[in-house]
Amino acid sequence: MIVSRDRVTLKMGAGGHAMRRLIGEVFLERLAGPEMLAGDIGLAALDDGAAVRIGDQWLVTTTDSHVVHPIFFPGGDIGRLAVAGTVNDLAMMGATEPVMLTLAVVIEEGFARADLERIAESIRIACAEAGVRIMTGDTKVMGKGELDGIILNTAGVALTSRVIPDRGLQVGDRILVTGTMGDHGLAVLAARGNLSLEVELRSDVAPINGLVRAALAVAGDGITAMKDPTRGGLASALHEMADKARVGILLEERAVPIRPDVRAVGELLGIDPLHVANEGKVVMGVRPDRAEAVLAAVRAHPLGREAALVGTCIADSPRRVVLDTGFGRRLLIEPDGEPLPRIC
């Protein structure tokens, strides 16, 4: 093929292999350099955010742009998504007390003011839940047709005394998910309305720094890595964690919590809930001796009631995720591109 090498495709933004390759070839090649201090986490780490040492603290920053169609969906909207996305990325580094967020808004000419106000209100509520405020921002309006509705960008800053990189998994660690998988991705797909489905799937979009704080409080140094399974779902998150830590992961499919209606929509559309986004969940590696304690702490939090231990890190099959289905085993395939309904 000729075209896809010369132009950026949607697949390159979907969180999988194609995206990592684009980032590597275009950005890391030119922008990544040696970190200021050993131990700092910079661009080359491709972690959820960056961390630099300031005295005895770590300064953690992250940034995220948000587009979603539809803008309003059951369980949330683009505003809530923009706050949760950034707060959660900070939390994934172990920084659960964000100091501030920034907000940049790019709006298409003709966008309804009432919708903009609704989004702003939603941002306010999500910030309150996360215990953070928007401290600075930027607003741009572009011509009709130059973008699809609205784009939000948020950046976040936090301080923490301990950073948890996403590459910390070790053989023997248990894999914990803090709740049901696939809720956001399938809710948004169902909300597009052209599938003639009568079902009210709700996105799980929520800031989860509180839940992570509760888990870290009982874990000590027992949490070895964290990732929020957004684009590409649990499958992508586990692949990335296994790849960076050079361990294998054995995932027990039957232990993974999936809502029955999410499973049903997945079966109807031929989409695996493990391949679609979550916006209010965490995948954690936990030292085996702390696994039950962390599980109990997560379950005690309102956003973690359905948490479960779903897998184990293994020495065999490094950088791969082996799925035990209860019938047999297979390698979990990393999704490439946005999952689409299929007929075969």
Partner: peptide, 23 residues
């Protein structure tokens, strides 16, 4: 995908698939 018919209206049936209704 197999499902259970809930209602029939002419050439359209509302069918329940594991709790999700679809025409």
């Amino acid at each position: 995908v197999p499902g259970r018919v809930i209602a029939v209206d002419g050439m359209i049936a509302t069918v329940d698939f594991w709790g999700v209704k679809k025409q």
